[in-house]
């Protein structure tokens, strides 16, 4: 009887350990979880860099939106910039593209954009309030928001291939 209880308790403990280890194996320990997918995108009111006009997400209600958080001090963001420009030229009539400058100065950003061009509105988030609301964990990060204002997904890495970006975009165009 005692032996039976001991075996059962041991099996339960081993099964618990296997469950915990199995759950954690294969996951990147540095990956920051993202739980806003499938939830309404937080609204914001921040100004455009080119004309100081205040822009809100609600201004684009009913349209799919791509939000790209980036900064001039971030190397991968610089590689991504031409890809974003190219894709926004192709999809600009069907999808709203908005850049949100993260933890940077206006002068640095304006200087970078003057040299490299910009094809869609760039918004300035001086106190990172929008970044906090969106659960940003680094840059670049791109959010895909559906017509109904729901965050479909976040892409937490730079896009280096326009094809890959197009594939992701099709999901919010459906």
């Amino acid at each position: 009887m005692k032996r039976g209880i001991a075996v059962t308790v041991s099996l339960v403990l081993v099964a618990g350990l296997i469950f915990i280890l199995g759950n954690a194996f294969g996951k990147d320990p540095h990956e920051v979880p993202f739980k806003l997918a499938g939830k309404p995108a937080p609204n914001f009111h921040i100004k455009r860099l080119d004309n100081d006009q205040v822009v809100s997400l609600s201004d684009y209600a009913g349209k799919p939106v791509v939000l790209n958080f980036w900064a001039t001090w971030c190397g991968p963001c610089k590689y991504e910039h031409p890809v974003l420009d190219a894709v926004s030229k192709e999809y600009g009539d069907r999808v709203v593209f908005l850049g949100i400058v993260f933890e940077d100065t206006e002068s640095n950003t304006k200087s970078f954009l003057r040299e490299n061009g910009w094809n869609f509105p760039q918004l300035f988030d001086p106190k990172s309030t929008v970044a906090v609301d969106y659960g940003v964990s680094g840059v670049p990060e791109t959010y895909f928001i559906s017509r109904s204002g729901i965050i479909v997904k976040k892409y937490p890495a730079p896009f280096t291939d326009p094809e890959k970006f197009s594939t992701e975009l099709e999901e919010i165009l459906r």
Partner: peptide
């Protein structure tokens, strides 16, 4: 200053 995030004051 060109390559690093500028420090920002908290509230």
């Amino acid at each position: 200053a060109q390559g690093y995030a500028p420090p920002r004051q908290g509230q």
